[in-house]
Amino acid sequence: MNSKFSISLLLVIGIVFISGCVQQPIPPKKERSTLKTEPIDLSGVETEKLGFIKYYSLSPLNITLQVSQYNLPLKTSQISNFNDFSKKFSLNSKALDLLEKNGFVVVSNPFNPKEEVITRPYKTLKDKEIPIFITSDSLLHLYHIQFDETLRQIEEREFYDRIWEISNELLKVSVEKYNRATGDLKEALKRNIAYLSVGLSLLKPREDQLCPP
């Protein structure tokens, strides 16, 4: 689960969204917005090329949005917890200008610039009691890592034995045909044997990889 990672202050700018608030005149109280989506169920869909689609479904959403609105540009002097935040997380003048202009800024990981595990910066922010705003791209990245891990386990548990058996059988057939062939066909079969032999050699486990009997 490794990935080069720069902390986006979308994580940290929760100082505005979560713990802190911009001290602006309070507008008349409005009804909070809601996020609604319709349910999606593709179990009954039939298609030749997208067989996996039948397993997809999405429950309906009905979420009341809780994040208070604010206006740009921001002023750090009006962010209620900015002083506490700046003691734990230092921003240079350029980063501060971008923060005030856009409401967020992207910076390198100030705690460990060489960090590769995507979840650790979140833990660091939590330990330092810096409010966290988790962005959708972070979740999508974790889903991608989880999917890669799922494929790896399928390859090890399901595909390995079958790939070995198929490759080994193809090698035997190629050797048998090679012994009877002549001319260009013999040369082609020789290359097949070399190709399959390399694959089997790479698939063959070392002694230290074997499970004890």
Rank of each mutant, 00 (worst) to 15 (best):
A95C: 09
D84I: 13
F111H: 00
P121Q: 02
K36Q: 02
V117Y: 13
S59G: 11
V105C: 04
P131T: 02
S59C: 12
L58M: 15
L72N: 04
D137A: 12
N62R: 00
I132V: 10
Q23G: 06
K87A: 10
P39F: 00
F85L: 08
S90M: 00
F133R: 11
I26E: 10
P60W: 03
D137C: 07
N102K: 03
K36F: 06
L42C: 11
N83Q: 08
S59Y: 10
E48H: 09
N92M: 03
V67R: 10
F89C: 04
N81D: 14
I79G: 04
Y56V: 15
I134F: 04
N112H: 12
Q78P: 08
P121R: 03
L125H: 02
E115N: 13
S90C: 05
L91F: 06
K75H: 12
V22L: 13
P28R: 12
K101M: 08
N71I: 14
E115I: 02
F52M: 05
S108P: 05
S77V: 06
L50S: 11
F89Q: 07
L98D: 15
T47W: 10
T47K: 03
F89Y: 15
L98C: 08
I63V: 14
S68F: 08
K54V: 11
F133G: 14
T135Y: 08
S43H: 14
